[in-house]
């Protein structure tokens, strides 16, 4: 899979530092399962974290610290060491998403948002004031102009869309910050399905779309 759009370096560093929301970590993981370019940068950012930890001023441990730890692992003595096996990826959808989409995208209880646009909200994921949702946009349908109060990560799962930034197809990640005002339109002959995480509310910029915003709840 040729991937053309990636996570920003600043986003990768926040992910490695562990300061992104759970929702962002889900979308970034789903993208990186498919994208070796971002995995390599994530490796470097994680090495940075490790190096900073190595050079951190030590804080003396309590006297009983070591004995506490040794008694906690006492029970583990007989545990056989099993080789670690990485989870495998099947098909083009990231394996991390299979827990949320166990029976495929067609079987999800999609909710109609506006003509040509359906959404499915992933429940139980910490996202601050934002959300994590799948959006299915029919070909030719345009999402109203909007900006973001916080950041927005969009991973294309199927199909493609275009906006002011470029052409995004399956595997591509759009990493947008609050300054970005865009109006994506689904292209091609099948719906564009995206996984979208925000860490704050979106803000629609047109009058009409501002009126419908409370109704569609983005």
């Amino acid at each position: 899979m040729k991937i053309n759009h990636h996570a920003d370096d600043a986003t990768i560093m926040a992910y490695a530092a562990g300061t992104v929301s759970e929702g962002f970590s889900l979308v970034l993981t789903a993208h990186m399962e498919l994208c070796s370019h971002c995995r390599e940068r994530m490796s470097l950012a994680s090495d940075l974290g490790g190096e900073l930890l190595s050079e951190l001023e030590p804080a003396p441990m309590s006297q009983e610290g070591l004995s506490n730890v040794l008694s906690a692992i006492e029970a583990d003595t007989l545990d056989p060491v099993t080789p670690f096996k990485s989870p495998s990826v099947s098909g083009e959808m990231a394996s991390i998403l299979s827990a949320y989409v166990p029976h495929g995208l067609d079987e999800l209880p999609w909710q109609s948002l506006m003509p040509g646009v359906r959404q499915y909200q992933l429940a139980g994921i910490e996202s601050g004031n934002g959300s994590v949702r799948l959006l299915s946009i029919s070909p030719g349908i345009r999402i109203p102009h909007h900006t973001h109060l916080g950041g927005e990560l969009t991973l294309v799962i199927e199909g493609a869309y275009e906006d002011e930034i470029g052409h995004f197809k399956a595997g591509d990640l759009a990493d947008l910050d609050a300054s970005c005002n865009h109006q994506p339109v689904a292209v091609g002959n099948r719906p564009c399905i995206c996984l979208i995480a925000t860490d704050d509310k979106l803000r629609f910029t047109g009058l009409l779309s501002r009126m419908v915003q409370p109704l569609i709840g983005i």
């Binding site: 562990g18 759970e22 970590s25 990186m32 990485s86 394996s95 991390i96 910490e126």
Partner: peptide
């Protein structure tokens, strides 16, 4: 929760 990608390249 925090989702973490396996960085060992063999996924």
């Amino acid at each position: 929760k925090f989702y973490e990608v396996a960085l060992n390249g063999d996924t």
